[in-house]
Computed example of a mutant assay.
Amino acid sequence: MPSTPPPPRPPATPFPGPPGGPGAATFAWALLPLVVPGAGAPLAFGIAAGRRPTAATVAPAIAYTAVFLGFFALILPFDVGETPDWALWSAFVLMVASTFGAAVHLLAVRRHVWAPRSPAPVPKPVPAGDWVAPALDQAARLREDARRLAEGDPSLAKRSGVGRPDRPRRLDDGGLVDLNHAPAAVLCELPGFNAALAEQVRERVERLGPFQSLDEVIVEVGVAPGFERHLREYAVLLP
């Protein structure tokens, strides 16, 4: 087990803003609709929505994109030279309105879009052991709660998967193992157990029925004295 948890990865901050606020280069971005009439407005607001995805940037990006597509919807249905005057004038008005309107709009939201971002807080290193003890205490409390459930309502404990890590669980039992029902592969994970000891437990339960106490397990199976404390910590006996 590592002595310290892995440090959290700092969040990425694409398109970092200038340290002192919006710079002169952002004026070129705001005037993009004048440089590229029609396509400049959705392009500039697309950049704004990518950097600062709020209602003030996403909604205009959608609106100016719709206007840009509307321009072609008015022109393309007709053959060259046969476009009616109303379609030409409508397309012209859309183009002029989106070009100059978007430039003014971008200048108005320039500070909002390019405001400098607060630097991400640097995570403090966690001293060794500071996170281990609370985790162990939490697991011990979970085991104690699961034991009380097993004593008070064994049927519910079985349905909830107490002591059966090989089955889907409905609650966290802190790592308990039911010696009377868990398969040999699970019993092998207990401290002091091996494959032969696990099979011995399974054969004994199948032959004589469930164990009634941990003392009975320790005497009949022959658990090494050095592992008795660990067995009492992690073993549970459901009827």
Rank of each mutant, 00 (worst) to 15 (best):
F27N: 02
L32S: 12
F68P: 04
I218K: 04
R147Q: 08
P22T: 09
G21H: 14
L74G: 11
S213V: 04
F27M: 06
A61D: 01
L190A: 03
R110W: 03
P19T: 03
L69M: 12
T57W: 11
W86F: 15
A120T: 14
V93M: 03
P14S: 07
A97V: 15
H112C: 02
P11K: 05
A30P: 06
V186E: 07
A49I: 01
A196G: 05
G40I: 05
A61R: 03
I75L: 10
L76K: 08
D215S: 13
V221S: 00
V80C: 01
P168S: 02
W131Q: 15
V236R: 01
L231G: 08
L156K: 12
A73V: 04
P239T: 06
F193S: 02
A140R: 14
A128H: 01
F92G: 15
L43M: 06
D178N: 05
R232A: 11
A185C: 01
A182C: 04
L136C: 01
Y234F: 09
E189G: 07
K158W: 15
L179S: 05
G161N: 07
L190V: 11
V186T: 14
E233R: 13
A63M: 11
L74W: 09
A97H: 00
R202Q: 11
G23S: 11
T26M: 05
R9G: 00
V35W: 02
P210D: 11
A61M: 09
F27E: 07
W114K: 09
L31V: 10
V113M: 08
V177G: 08
D178I: 06
P22L: 12
N194P: 05
P2Q: 10
P8W: 03
V93Q: 00
S98R: 05
A30G: 13
P2A: 14
V104P: 00
I62M: 08
P53E: 06
V58P: 06
W131E: 12
I75F: 07
G222H: 07
W89K: 03
R232T: 04
I75C: 02
R117P: 00
T54Q: 12
D85E: 15
P239F: 08
G70N: 12
R159M: 13
V80E: 10
G175F: 01
P210H: 04
P18H: 14
L31T: 10
A120P: 00
G175E: 04
E189M: 08
F72Q: 07
D145G: 13
E216R: 09
P119N: 08
G192V: 07
R159C: 10
D173V: 04
A25P: 12
L69Q: 02
A87T: 15
L74Q: 14
T57R: 11
E228A: 02
F15V: 07
A115K: 10
W86V: 14
A91H: 10
F45M: 12
L197F: 03
A198S: 14
L214T: 08
P19S: 03
R202T: 15
T54F: 09
P19G: 01
A140E: 11
Q138L: 06
V217R: 04
A102I: 06
A128K: 13
G174K: 00
G174Q: 00
Y64N: 03
D85A: 09
V67H: 00
T83Y: 01
S160T: 01
H105G: 15
L43Q: 00
A28E: 11
A63K: 02
G20R: 15
F45D: 02
L107H: 05
G70C: 15
P42Q: 05
F45C: 06
